[in-house]
Nucleic acid binder design. Sequence first.
DNA 1: ACGAGCGCCTGTCGGC
DNA 2: TGCCGACAGGCGCTCG
Length: 274
Amino acid sequence: MPELPEVETIRRALKHGGRGAESIVGRQVLESRLLWERTLAEPTQIEFQERILGQGITDIDRRGKFLLLQLSTDTLIFHLRMSGDLNVVNENEPIASHDRLWLGLDGGLRLSFNDTRKFGRAWLVPDPHAVTANLGPEPLGEGFTAHDFHARLLAHRRQLKPLLMDQSFLAGLGNIYTDEALHLSKLHPLQISDTLNETQSGRLWSSIRQVLQEGIERQGASIDWVYKGGDFQNYFRVYQRTGEPCPECGNPIQRITVGQRGTHYCQNCQPQSS
DNA sequence: ACGAGCGCCTGTCGGC
DNA sequence: TGCCGACAGGCGCTCG
């Protein structure tokens, strides 16, 4: 579930309440349990237990697809990868079947990291920068200008889709929102980054921001058995719509593989130019 | 510098 | 019904 809009939706729920739970800001960690060892990237399980007990949750931030729980002295960072989610439940609730790590909080709450496919990771570190240092700019950040984006595109000679999904180039896009942004900007997923003129890169810049903003407003997308509450999936332009009519021109949506990822686009609206 | 292949995991779906 | 491959919102690694 996790691209920028889904992570942002979870962040807001943890910070302000929502998704059927109350805010965890201001709560204190009283207990911790690691149920799948590899979920904890850093530090060791022993050190994790020792360090986190007693720390208070002071704020919830996001950087790209990383969720940052600011604690009294450390930062607890989660990356949800393919199937991760964070739930706040009453401590009387049974442990869910794919819970991998959970924290007992004061007030009778439990924060649990649930992750069917076990790709997700957690870090407890003194300095969050150690984990997020290699990320590119925030696409919705004020410092991310169309001008800078164009310069960054020209600095590489790469296919647009894999480049946009490279988190060191831009932080937050995944398979869904990349396909959506490319279709909205009428650019082919295989077009080479340094062939874009300023008009094209400007269109891509605003398309990326538009689809991410819409995703956040719709509280993310809910697909397959992983239900999160958002409904952006009902507004996909091309993603997983192979063979269905393009919303712009009516031609059937094509599916190809780019960088080992399913890629959806319209041959007519997104011509291969170079 | 870049792209392809693969590993990490569990689950669903369609075809035979 | 059972089995089997394809596929799934991500990313780190190796190898050309």
